[in-house]
Design a protein around this nucleic acid. Structure first.
Lengths: 151, 151
DNA sequence: CTCCCTGCAAAATTTTTGCATCAAT
DNA sequence: ATTGATGCAAAAATTTTGCAGGGAG
């Protein structure tokens, strides 16, 4: 599902963007991929790491996530709940949001992205360089326990 | 542009959703409409109100905004910056976001909403009741001082 | 060996909460 | 008169910052 990244690939990516490949950065990134689909906040990453890495500090997690976003290694997720949430998924994708359970489900569909991107391209926005579009679908799960599936 | 709401209309709307029509709620709502397009945080609403209403408290502004969202009088705006931002505009609309200036511009276009809504309707999502879609267009203004316009 | 990064702790921000008083219905 | 809302202040939650010591290149 998520492309697993080896530590060597990760080290390369880090130095490619000018960041030192420290142990902390590696395990923070791995925690993010382990939490794939959960769009975790910094605290959640920290909690996941603490058992195996008791000396890591929450401040470092915050700084690390910031530096990852700044260098484009990860992205922040749009949310209305107010916290900063992170996502390793750089492929354009949409989110399905259940206002009941507060779940955010990734939904990848190139067709949808093309549809919306084309729409804006045709609109000829002046003074604006479009880089990406995000679509969020809002609603509620009928069965809060069940999964959302697409036929 | 924004439909100006008279105080009487506002009082009616408040009681319609089960909230007492207090002075504070009325001026908070008016501040929100005055800040239309700015998607303000609670603090900004408070600052705008303070000169004319020196006794209003920030806590009340927070509680008021919460109760407005809960009752559907206003909406929270999707953001990746982490704070809670508010919008009186209940009409489905999109946002154009400049990652440089951090501006969020409203973009109302029924055609776009229909396009995306239809797309998902055809997808036949199982176990999900769709209520709305939000589109955010990301990019940067070529001239940070200029306006974005649509031909 | 150099510079960047980490951990720690303090501080700054943002948001929530409890409670006595006050105002809307 | 009743009930819910306000203001205030304290507390909780979240995020940033400064700096001395440590580790990657």
């Amino acid at each position: 599902m998520t492309n697993a990244v080896t530590r060597n690939e990760l080290k390369q990516r880090l130095s490619a963007v000018g960041l030192k490949a420290t142990h902390q950065r590696i395990v923070v990134y791995e925690a993010l991929t382990a939490l794939h689909g959960h769009h975790p906040v910094a605290e959640a990453v920290y909690q996941l790491l603490k058992p195996a890495h008791p000396t890591i500090s929450l401040g470092t997690v915050y700084k690390t996530l910031d530096s990852f976003v700044e260098t484009g290694l990860i992205k922040r997720v749009l949310t209305e709940a107010g916290g900063k949430r992170y996502d390793t998924n750089l492929v354009p994708h949409s989110h399905i949001y259940c206002s009941n359970t507060k779940e955010i489900l990734d939904y990848e569909d190139a067709e949808l992205d093309a549809l919306v991107t084309d729409f804006f391209r045709k609109k000829n926005l002046e003074n604006f360089d479009m880089s990406s579009v995000s679509v969020q679908l809002n609603g509620v799960k009928k069965d809060p326990e069940g999964k959302i599936s697409i036929k």
